[in-house]
Nucleic acid binder design. Structure first.
Length: 530
DNA sequence: ACCAGTTGACC
DNA sequence: ATTTTGT
DNA sequence: ACAAAATGGTCAACTGGT
């Protein structure tokens, strides 16, 4: 199949808002793809290359060669080119990658170049992604969409489901079960603003799990072989040797566990997410030892490595038996039989909103992120964000100044969208930037912002309109994080707009000191000798 | 030996 | 990650 | 009820250049 066929489909899919029409367009193209093309077509129409990383990004695509006049590229050729780029590493690889990319894009027509660009950047904007491609594929092959979706979730991707479907047929799809060693799409949680609405969504009684702010992991064990997958099903086994060891010591031979990895301090409170994530992103212990040796010789400091531990909250597979369809209460019972308490997330079974609120308050007081409220009867809905799991986190609010706004893209084109947020410096009164947000804005608010901020603009560039720092906006966030980018040394985490405060003047906005109170009482500064 | 820019992954 | 919009 | 888009911040790895 020619790449042009997918580029054409992409244009057509983007042109309609009807999901059914999108599905039919996708189905027509997928029905025409041969067995060798199907996986690539499924992946590309879903907006993704088959390679997880190619080393190409927006910078690498900044200058493209003249487009070709006629389409000649085949899917196999394109996939091979990206495969080549993905495999390049070491000195000279960057130059080589640029050359390969230039050759590929030089053979592409203008429309194909735009399509490829969207694939590389994950920026297709056609109003259809993985889920709609599944529907299209199901229609093209006349299989039950629910069967296809389930297979995709259990096989880790729609591409894998497509491969199985085209090679082994419909029956093989229906027979798919969870397999030790193949990542299952993790179940996600909906969210609620407070404990009582969470309980209202889930129903009672409900389980309340302490929500840990770390790295989501799915751990597979088959005998001595242990594999750890991240939320996106990346294999991160090499980065978490302590977790491998802990799981190897369990009595069960075959396991698929769902949990969170983090580090606790001496006092039992969790380390900051930033430290945990940094540790988890660091390659194998061998490298760390080497780095420590090296820095010892140089007399420099290497940050002390954190002891990462896994805390599990679900069990999906045990010794030949899938537990995906089993109700949570049964999965929990089995989890408690198989794992010692030190490896489990703390949880309670609650009946009332008051009990839940007390559990939530206690968890937050101990430094944890919040709670996840779960329906005892629900099965494990792989890959879905259902009301059977609902997370709740404390919400903090500040009144901040808007110092600038950025022009939006895509459906926000032509509107001033992303706003720059600042607190007042308590001494000088000058705004200190703490981050940006585009969240919480309705279309109506976007219209208002565009008009309002245009009227108080002091400076304009291509992307950013600087404004007089007089507008006060009420912002919600999950907390603060240490920042080297922003001058106050902190940035807002998950900031979103609640409402504008036309009733407040700039002088009434919160100060940097007000915001920093969220960090808790200031820590004794260690003696800094250099 | 170190720095800066880019990419990719986590939340 | 969160939120809004549209089917 | 679900899917998609729009865009946030941080960190480590990697590469090329000084």
């Amino acid at each position: 199949m020619l790449l042009d066929r997918l580029a054409e489909t992409w244009t057509a899919v983007a042109a309609t808002r009807s999901r059914n029409a999108k599905r039919d367009l996708l189905a027509a193209t997928l029905a025409d793809a041969g067995p060798d093309d199907l996986e690539i077509a499924v992946s590309y129409l879903g907006g993704a290359l088959r390679q997880r990383r190619t080393g190409l990004g927006w910078r690498g695509l900044a200058e493209l060669p003249e487009p070709a006049a006629t389409p000649i590229l085949t899917l196999l050729e394109v996939d091979a080119a990206f495969e080549l780029m993905a495999g390049l590493s070491g000195p000279g690889s960057s130059t080589r990658r640029t050359a390969v990319a230039a050759e590929l894009f030089g053979q592409a027509t203008a429309r194909e170049q735009a399509f490829l660009r969207g694939l590389v950047l994950g920026d297709l904007r056609q109003g259809a992604m993985d889920a709609l491609v599944q529907e299209g594929l199901a229609k093209a092959y006349a299989v039950d969409p629910a069967v296809l979706r389930r297979a995709a979730m259990l096989l880790s991707s729609t591409t894998e489901a497509a491969r199985l479907l085209v090679r082994e047929g419909r029956d093989a799809l229906a027979a798919v079960g969870p397999t030790v060693g193949t990542g299952v799409q993790p179940m996600l949680a909906a969210s609620a603003p407070d404990p009582s609405s969470a309980l209202a969504k889930v129903g009672s009684p409900a389980y309340a799990d302490v929500k840990l702010d770390g790295i989501r992991v799915q751990v597979h064990r088959l005998g001595d072989e242990v594999r750890i997958f991240s939320r996106s099903l990346d294999d991160i086994t090499e980065r978490l040797p302590e977790v491998v060891e802990a799981v190897r010591e369990l009595p069960a031979r075959e396991l698929v566990l769902d949990g969170e990895v983090l580090a606790l301090r001496q006092d039992g409170r969790p380390e900051a997410f930033q430290l945990i994530a940094a540790q988890a992103a660091t390659q194998a212990a061998v490298t760390q030892v080497a780095a420590a040796d090296q820095s010892a010789q140089l007399g420099t400091q290497v940050p002390e490595s954190l002891a990462l531990r896994a805390f599990f909250f679900d069990l999906l597979y045990l010794d030949g038996r899938s537990l995906l369809e089993a109700p949570l209460r049964d999965r929990i019972a089995e989890l408690e039989r198989q794992l010692p308490a030190e490896l489990r997330v703390e949880r309670a079974l609650v009946d009332t909103a008051d009990e839940l609120a007390a559990f939530f308050d206690a968890a937050v007081a101990r430094g944890f992120e919040g709670v996840v409220v779960k329906a005892p009867d629900a099965g494990y809905a792989a890959g879905r964000r259902q009301a059977s799991w609902v997370k709740v986190k404390p919400r903090h609010t500040f009144d901040l100044l808007v110092t600038g706004v950025e022009w939006g893209y895509g459906r926000r084109q032509g509107w001033l969208s992303n706003i720059h947020l600042a607190a007042r410096d308590e001494r000088t009164g000058e705004p200190v930037m703490l981050g940006k947000t585009f969240k919480g804005m309705t279309d109506e608010l976007l219209r208002w912002q565009t008009e309002h901020f245009s009227s108080i603009a002091t400076e304009r560039t291509d992307h950013v309109v600087t404004v007089e720092p007089t507008t006060v906006v009420e912002i919600a966030c999950d907390g603060l994080q240490v920042s080297t980018r922003y001058p106050g040394g902190v940035a807002l985490r998950f900031a979103r707009v609640l409402r504008y405060r036309p009733d407040k003047t700039a002088a009434e906005a919160d100060t940097l000191a007000d915001v920093k109170r969220l960090l808790g009482p200031p820590v004794e500064a260690p003696d800094e000798t250099s």
